[in-house]
């Protein structure tokens, strides 16, 4: 029997997120025969715009129009979704800050299985879905079997399913606001505090010398700064460096940091988690230096060196300075 799949559409300022396209590919990969329906929550005119965009991808779009969704809040929309998503259906949600907030609890409310952060689907057989996940920030992968006979909520890794051009579904929009009902949220949105601007805007840098936990100690950062100076680039970093307060937040590359688009990106002692890579756009030329030959960063870099950055970087800097 063909599955019934629902995909949750993220949007901002009246524009559907890239994941709207990606989830359509993911749904087809999960089950080519499935009927796929997009669900969009929001309020007013912006919502209508997003529904139109979703209808260009999906044959049917369910719209939940409610003032309480003017700023999307997982605690508000979760009970609404639990009311309208039929038993036994599979729901796909992007694995990012909103999906992580919404999805685990939704699976409980729907009495469905929960499968987080999927990077690949490998077919359904006898009520069991085969999927691919990563563990230990991508150092190893696993095949998992998920019992979807009573439905499932699945979060899908952003970027794992590449969208294709040239769709045109001409879908219809169905207003489900009434059925979805309302909710008295026990968590209330107050405001968004915008990230502070740093002294260097790494989103504009052409050359980024980026450092990760492999640097081991704050004092060692000096060798990174010297390399950056030698190549005429700026220093950026992965999240643990900011968590340790060794560099300011504005230098962090990644989904919860800055989105950068340099020409050349040097990843030094960075393992290559998807949240870090999610902040690197425009396919820069990437050089990775890592002491672990199996580090996931080597799968995405153009050039790799297996070395201890504490020894390698100063030597590289010296050579560059000499060659000038």
């Amino acid at each position: 029997m063909a599955l019934q799949i629902f995909v949750y559409i993220l949007h901002k300022g009246g524009v559907a997120d890239d994941s709207a396209q990606e989830l359509s590919i993911a749904a087809r990969k999960l089950d080519p025969e499935a009927t796929v329906t997009a669900v969009v929550g929001g309020a007013g005119e912006q919502l209508s715009k997003v529904c139109e965009q979703a209808a260009a991808i999906y044959p049917e779009v369910w719209k939940i129009d409610n003032e309480a969704l003017g700023y999307i809040n997982a605690e508000v929309i979760r009970p609404m979704l639990a009311r309208i998503i039929p038993a036994g259906a599979v729901t796909l949600v992007p694995h990012e800050h909103f999906g992580m907030d919404l999805a685990p609890g939704l699976s409980i409310k729907l009495n469905a299985a929960y499968l987080p952060d999927v990077v690949g689907f490998e077919g359904v057989e006898g009520g069991k879905l085969n999927a691919v996940r990563e563990e230990f920030s991508g150092q190893v992968s696993t095949h998992v079997s998920c019992d979807i006979s009573a439905g499932a909520v699945i979060t899908v890794r952003p970027g794992a399913f590449q969208p294709q051009e040239g769709q045109g579904a001409g879908g219809r929009v169905v207003d489900k606001s009434g059925e979805a009902g309302t909710a008295t949220p026990r968590r209330r949105y107050l405001e968004t505090v915008v990230a502070e601007v740093g002294d260097v805007d790494i989103t504009k840098s052409e050359i980024l010398v980026s450092v990760g936990r492999g640097i081991e100690d704050q004092d060692n950062l000096e060798i990174i700064q010297e390399l950056a100076k030698a190549v005429g680039g700026d220093v950026s970093c992965s999240r643990p460096i900011v968590d340790a307060k060794w560099l300011e937040k504005a230098r962090q590359v990644g989904t919860s940091g800055q989105t950068v688009k340099p020409k050349v990106y040097m990843a030094l002692g960075i393992s290559g988690s998807f949240q870090h890579l999610g902040g690197i756009k425009g396919a820069p030329f990437m050089v990775a230096v890592n002491k672990n030959p199996k580090a996931p960063i080597f799968q995405v870099a153009d050039v790799g060196v297996v070395a201890d950055i504490l020894e390698f970087v100063p030597e590289l800097t010296e050579k560059i300075n000499e060659s000038k």
Binding site: R187, R188, T192, V194
Partner: peptide, 15 residues
């Protein structure tokens, strides 16, 4: 405060 995209922070009151 919840961490959202781009280093922004979403403030909420929760019961």
């Amino acid at each position: 405060g919840r961490e959202i995209a781009g280093g922004n922070q979403e403030m909420n009151e929760i019961d």
